[in-house]
Design a protein around this nucleic acid. Structure first.
Lengths: 173, 173
DNA sequence: CAGACATATCTCGACGTCAAGATATTCCGC
DNA sequence: GCGGAATATCTTGACGTCGAGATATGTCTG
């Protein structure tokens, strides 16, 4: 306690603005700048573990969405769009490449022939399984340096942000 | 108080894992999943305001870095790399396009001819100025729905995360 | 001062994403 | 059951980013 927190990259940005434009209110930047910067730094750490297991993070994301959907591990491209916050063109592209790797299959629904069913193959499920533990451990390790209070604060703050962003309404399944 | 927080998209993901793999510890996912998802949702809101002012967010980022460097509003490509967490190839590309729009100039340093000086033009400074207020207001508006406690929790949690990520050592000037 | 190493920037090719629109199918009101 | 609106997916072209390596310049060691 009482110890001054070490200044980070965002603090330096705020310092620069304080010199250049002391009239500005940078308190929102202090939050949002960190949010986006740290999300990028965290993603880089996650990518490193995926790479060790021969996966891109977008591949893992798709496999995870299918895995957690439960047997028969099947979703439509539209459901993937919404779950992963990506556009339909991106989903088509991702599914094609996962199909080429043998991780998923695609087939038309016979009741509604507009719909496609993307299903995890056994190979795909195994690839997810093989990577998941290391990934989860990686996430745990990243947060391990936080005290319980800090971690609660971060989670609570993010939950509140999610409420403000209206996330409950988006990404529905 | 006592009111149950509305369940959001990440809660639904956690619920799905609880059904599929009740043995998993998803508490780290609850934090990191939100971090990356909300960073993406926030970025989309920021992009909307930049678009109203005819800028891409990467353009605004470069103009901001130069602006807050102070007169003569000049940085090297390497400094931009580190400030913006991008690779040198990306910086070259960004600077070329900002130069084409008349927002920056490039010239070799005469003392060390490996070095380039990227300088904000008056046009570039004006473009930043014209966008900055709306952008700052947008950031403030996004956070306006948070209570002071929630906002403090979010900021404090992010600062702790920055410490854990070693951000103080990165992005230095 | 020559050679090796270090630094700064740029080039090139590949990749992932998006936006807009095309196509195919289903639903709904009459 | 017909025509138009709605829905689901795919196609296309453009763009931003990265990684690896090329080039040019500077520094250091002996």
């Amino acid at each position: 306690m009482g110890e001054t927190r070490q200044r980070d990259a965002i603090d330096r940005i705020l310092d620069e603005w304080a010199v250049q434009r002391p009239d500005l209110d940078v308190s929102a930047l202090a939050v949002i700048g960190r949010l986006s910067r740290y999300a990028a730094l965290v993603q880089a750490r996650l990518d490193a573990v995926f790479a060790e297991h021969g996966l891109q993070s977008w591949e893992f994301d798709v496999l995870s969405a299918l895995r957690r959907a439960g047997a028969p591990y099947e979703l439509t491209p539209g459901e993937l769009d919404r779950a992963l916050l990506i556009t339909s063109g991106t989903t088509t592209h991702r599914v094609q490449r996962l199909e080429a790797r043998g991780f998923v299959t695609r087939r038309r629904d016979n009741d509604d022939r507009r719909i496609v069913r993307v299903r995890l193959t056994e190979t795909g499920r195994a690839a997810h399984e093989a990577t998941h533990d290391a990934h989860a451990a990686n996430e745990t390790r990243i947060l391990a340096g936080l005290s319980p209070d800090e971690r609660d604060a971060l989670l609570g703050g993010l939950q509140a942000l999610g409420r403000v962003l209206g996330d409950a309404a988006e990404g529905g399944a």
